[in-house]
Simulated assay, not measured.
Amino acid sequence: METKSGPPVFDGYISEAEYAAQRGVSIRTCQRDRAMRKAPPHVLIGKAIYYRVEAVRDWLLRRETDFDQHHSSRSRGRAR
């Protein structure tokens, strides 16, 4: 009996090691970020962590800041 196989189940996901490598940080840093809830959404399968590429991109976009906005919000409330 011949079966059709669809796309691989993990298409669009990267491992924790790949995510860390692309960020240029250690796996331990990624673990710490997750513990502090400063990481993108992830999936735990067994003991392995995976990140959906689109979720990581969305997470990065939400953290983008404009220099002028960031700078002006820091200077508010300061006595001159």
Rank of each mutant, 00 (worst) to 15 (best):
R63V: 04
R34Y: 07
R23C: 14
S26R: 08
S73L: 10
R37Q: 10
A17D: 11
E16M: 11
R80E: 09
K47S: 13
R62Y: 06
S15R: 03
M36E: 14
F10P: 01
K38H: 03
D58N: 10
L60Q: 13
D66V: 15
R32Q: 05
Q22W: 00
S15P: 00
Q31L: 11
H71Q: 08
S5A: 08
R28A: 13
I14A: 02
S26E: 08
T29M: 09
I49R: 05
K4T: 10
I27K: 11
A55I: 00
G77N: 11
A48D: 10
I45A: 12
I45C: 11
R76D: 03
P7M: 06
S72D: 05
H70C: 08
E2W: 04
P40C: 02
E64A: 12
E2N: 06
R23N: 08
K4D: 10
R23D: 04
G6P: 00
R37Y: 13
T3D: 02
A39N: 15
Y19V: 02
I45K: 06
V25H: 03
S15E: 04
F67H: 09
E16I: 08
L61W: 05
T3C: 05
H42R: 02
G6W: 01
P8Y: 06
R37H: 14
K38Q: 13
D58Q: 15
A20K: 05
P40G: 02
P40L: 00
E2Q: 05
Y51E: 00
A79N: 08
R80P: 09
R62W: 07
R62A: 14
V53G: 03
Q69R: 11
P41H: 07
D68K: 14
R57D: 04
H70L: 14
K38L: 13
A20H: 07
I14W: 05
G6V: 04
V25K: 04
S72Y: 00
Q31R: 15
H71I: 12
